[in-house]
C-alpha cells in the first residue's frame, strides 16, 4: 500500500531511532536507572505500549523474528494489534514460539520457557518509577534514587507486614538491581520476578507516556525486596493447568458459568500449546476441547 511507503522501516525515522538507542546504551551502562528520553507520539494511544513499541522499533532489524504477548498470550487483542503493526511497517518475521523469537515484546508477563543468550525482552511499562506511589513528585524521587535513599520503600513493605502479615504487593513487585537502583519490573506478577535475575537475555523497559527507558544487561543480579524474617515468595496454585497439567506455570482463572465453576489455565499460551503438543494433558482438556468446537 502506498500509505506504508511513506514511513521508514519500523515506522520511526532514523534520527529518532538513534536518540532511543543512545538512551538504551546509557540505560545498559547504569542498570536499573531510568533514562529520560524524548518519547514520540505513536499511532497507538499512551497506555497501549508506546514505550515498548518505540524500543522495539529502535532495535528491530530486518532479520529479526518478533513475538508479541499481552497477559502471556499471543492472541490477546493488543498483542495482535502490535504484531500487525510491525508486520506492516517493518515486514519482519513474527512467531508465537518463545524459542524462535529474537525479540519478545511483552505486557505483564515473562514467558515460562527459559530465555536464551541473544534474545531481547522488551517490556511495556506504565509507571516506571517504583517510588511513585510513595512520592508523587519526580523531582523528589530522582533525588531519592541519586542518594540511594530507599527507606520509604522499606517502611511501606514493613507496614504491609504489620497490617496484613505479609507484603501485599503481588505485581510490579519492586526489585533492587545490581545492588544499587530500586526498579519497577513493570506490572508482571511477582511470580515472574525470579526470571529477571541473572537472565541470559537482554531486558529493555520502555515507558512512552512517562518518557523513560531502563534496562538490565544479561546476567544482571536482580533481587526482589524482602526482609530476612519475611523472605520473598511467589504465588502458587492448588491445582495444575486444566489444559496441559503444568504445575510450574502462572495460571489464569477463567470463569466458566454463572454457578461459580472455574478453570485454571496457563497464561503463557505458547508454553501451554507446546506442552499439549508434546502429549501433556490436564484434568479438563477434554471438556474444554469440546466446548471450543
Amino acid at each position: 500500500m502506498q500509505e506504508e511507503q511513506n514511513y521508514n522501516f519500523a515506522y520511526l525515522d532514523e534520527q529518532t531511532k538513534r536518540m532511543i538507542r543512545r538512551a538504551l546504551l546509557k540505560a545498559l551502562a547504569v542498570p536499573g536507572y531510568q533514562v529520560p528520553f524524548a518519547g514520540r507520539e505513536m499511532p497507538m494511544p499512551y497506555g497501549w505500549g508506546t514505550g515498548g513499541i518505540q524500543v522495539t522499533a529502535a532495535i528491530l532489524e530486518p532479520e529479526d523474528t518478533l513475538k508479541v504477548i499481552d497477559q502471556g498470550a499471543d492472541d490477546t487483542t493488543n498483542a495482535v494489534s502490535i504484531r500487525k503493526f510491525f508486520q506492516k511497517v517493518a515486514g519482519v518475521e513474527t512467531t508465537e514460539k518463545t524459542e524462535e523469537a529474537s525479540i519478545i515484546q511483552t505486557r505483564h508477563r515473562i514467558p515460562e520457557r527459559d530465555l536464551e543468550e541473544g534474545q531481547i525482552m522488551v517490556y511495556q511499562v506504565p509507571i516506571p518509577e517504583p517510588l511513585r506511589f510513595l512520592e508523587p513528585r519526580e523531582t523528589e524521587t530522582r533525588k531519592m534514587h541519586a542518594l540511594e535513599e530507599y527507606g520509604l520503600m522499606h517502611v511501606k513493605l514493613y507496614e504491609d507486614i504489620a497490617r496484613h502479615g505479609h507484603i501485599a504487593t503481588t505485581y510490579a513487585y519492586p526489585v533492587k538491581v545490581a545492588d544499587r537502583y530500586i526498579m519497577d519490573p513493570s506490572p508482571i506478577p511477582k511470580f515472574d520476578n525470579p526470571k529477571l535475575d541473572n537472565s541470559p537475555a537482554l531486558q529493555l523497559f520502555g515507558a512512552g507516556r512517562e518518557k523513560r527507558i531502563y534496562a538490565l544487561p544479561p546476567y544482571t543480579p536482580v533481587k526482589s525486596l524482602d526482609f530476612e524474617d519475611h523472605p520473598f515468595e511467589t504465588q502458587t496454585w492448588d491445582e495444575p493447568c486444566a489444559l496441559c497439567g503444568a504445575t510450574d506455570s502462572y495460571l489464569d482463572e477463567v470463569i466458566m458459568d454463572d454457578k461459580g465453576t472455574r478453570m485454571f489455565v496457563c497464561s503463557d499460551t505458547d508454553y501451554c500449546t507446546t506442552r499439549r503438543e508434546a502429549g501433556h494433558v490436564g484434568p479438563d482438556a477434554q471438556a474444554v476441547g469440546e466446548a471450543a468446537e
Binding site: 505486557r107 505483564h108 497464561s267
Partner: peptide
C-alpha cells in the same frame, strides 16, 4: 486492556 494476570495475583 486486559489486566487478568495482575488481577489474578491480587
Amino acid at each position: 486492556l486486559p489486566h487478568y494476570v495482575d488481577f489474578q495475583s491480587e
